[in-house]
Amino acid sequence: MDFSSMLPVAAFWLFASITILSGLLVILAKNPVHSVLWLILAFFSAAGLFVLMGAEFLAMLLVIVYVGAVAVLFLFVVMMLDINFVELRQGIMQNAPIGVVVGLVLLAELGTLGAAWHFGDDVAKNAAAPTPVVEQVENTAALGNIIYTDYIFIFQMSGLILLVAMIGAIVLTHRTRPGVRRQDVSKQNARRPEDAYELVDVEVGKGVALPTKKG
């Protein structure tokens, strides 16, 4: 029996069914925190599927970026939300038709996009280049070649767009609020014992006047 070919098949069915099941549970779970946890499981088993396809670099990236960072922030936000679940469920039937219509429009748009897609001229040339055998080329190096050699300008452009989006988000949300006591590290470090306290000889039965603040 050739078990070495059986193992990946079994693993595929395992990961695939877990991915689909947890994907379903993301939208079926009652508690939003559970939804996020199911989403994380879906990401993780999708990474397993990537490994089975020999795309180990993508798999690790999926885990590091989505599971390790993005989903943590999701979980962070969802856990802090103060939601009344019963209230949330009211009116779900009223809004359902609108949801269905929006979903259908999105699906139709995706379909037209896929049908009317035109590839650039160099894509055909690059796609025609022979794919190296998996054993000969590490997929880290292969991906690096594609991103940083073949499509460097597109890559740079998307990087710039992301940078603009990031700066935009910071500018929109950052505001200086008056009346908030902030800690200024340089001020804290510049503080010396002489500014902070004063030794006073107290005569018995007399007490001292409150020390005046030094400029």
Binding site: L37, I40, E56, F57, M60, L61, V63, I64, V67, G68, A69, V72, L75, F76, M79, E138, T140
Partner: peptide
């Protein structure tokens, strides 16, 4: 693994879930 170091990074980035959960 060819991507051993990324695997380590990936697993250590998952470590936060035990604590958050």
């Amino acid at each position: 693994l060819n991507v051993g170091i990324l695997y380590l990074l990936a697993i250590s980035s998952l470590g936060v879930y035990g604590i958050i959960m």
